[in-house]
């Protein structure tokens, strides 16, 4: 089992992006997916960083893929998606329509925002050329076990959501813009004010969600720290770590140490908790039923 770093969900300045991927290239993660996932309007502000980042990551021996957008509606977005294949790296499909631009016979990856809930879907994607599939974070362990075994039998890597705020929903509407009484088309890029999303609490002050433009995330940081052993046993090939603005190299390092057997699960959790916003972790989707729940005790 190894580590995949997923695409950054947030709108960061290009300097921050450059430093982030520079630091990431010095970690021991096996592979990185990068590119704009959430909003095509952001891409022109940081896209010149992508070739530099790809070069640094490949030079450091990492596998690299580029992600599609999570929700493709505009003609401009369709063209952008069609161009991804020309980059020459595997495309990670996060909106099924990206597959229309992947020629038959060209291998591709499938991201956590494609609905892979069962054997029939996994089988169809494998026959179509998928070589690596990150399952949706919502899946319970029983489903993961069935799909990971099938992936192992078919020689296709099955990943699960390992660590990071959960991508819970995607919309046509921009909630960041709405919070500023603006429409998406006149957003003035206010999502850039919140490098890890903007927190949403209930009226009783319960931490609940975080909005990131058109995306809605969990407030809690999902983490499979307590399930690594069982995920290994069922044949999960990799854990996905999702970028955040602070402490991400630490997150990569402690996860690597845990997979190498140099940190126990409680030690891992103790090191991860200070990096999570408000110290809140969850693993309910995998471990139980309610996504927001956490199977470990309070620190």
């Amino acid at each position: 089992m190894d580590l995949t770093v997923g695409p950054n969900f947030f709108f960061w300045p290009s300097d921050t992006v450059r430093e982030f991927y520079g630091r990431l290239s010095r970690t021991t993660v096996a592979r990185v997916v990068l590119g704009e996932l959430v909003c095509s309007k952001r891409l022109p502000f940081w896209q010149e960083e992508i070739p530099t980042a790809v070069e640094a990551l490949i030079a450091a021996g990492k596998e690299v893929a580029v992600t599609s957008l999570a929700l493709i509606t505009l003609k401009r977005e369709r063209n952008l998606t069609a161009d991804l294949i020309d980059i020459g790296l595997p495309v990670e499909v996060n909106d099924l329509s990206a597959l229309a631009h992947v020629p038959l016979g060209t291998p591709f990856w499938v991201g956590p925002l494609v609905n892979v809930y069962n054997e029939g879907t996994l089988n169809w994607l494998i026959r179509r050329g998928a070589t690596r599939i990150c399952l949706p974070p919502e899946l319970p362990l029983a489903s993961v076990a069935v799909l990971a075994k099938m992936g192992r039998d078919e020689g296709v890597a099955v990943e699960v959501w390992g660590h990071g705020r959960l991508p819970l929903a995607i919309s046509g509407r921009c909630y960041h813009a709405r919070l500023h009484d603006r429409a998406k088309d006149s957003c003035q890029f206010v999502c850039g004010d919140d490098p890890d999303g903007r927190e949403v609490e209930t009226l009783d002050g319960q931490p609940f969600l975080a909005v990131n433009g058109v995306q809605t995330l969990s407030q809690s940081t999902a983490s499979v720290a307590h399930q690594v052993q069982v995920l290994r046993e069922v044949g999960v090939a990799a854990l996905r770590l999702s970028p955040q603005s602070k402490g991400f190299t630490t997150i990569c390092d402690v996860w690597s140490q845990h997979l190498a057997g140099r940190l126990t699960a409680p030690e891992l959790v103790a090191k991860l908790r200070p990096t999570a916003p408000a110290g809140r972790l969850s693993d309910g989707f995998l471990a139980g039923t309610v996504g927001a729940a956490w199977s470990g005790g309070r620190a």
Partner: peptide, 21 residues
């Protein structure tokens, strides 16, 4: 639905039960 349908797990995050599953 304000979210793209079939691509929302807000309900299961809060209750364990979702439209998809």
């Amino acid at each position: 639905c304000v979210m793209a349908e079939g691509r929302c797990s807000l309900s299961s995050y809060a209750t364990g039960q979702s439209p998809n599953m």
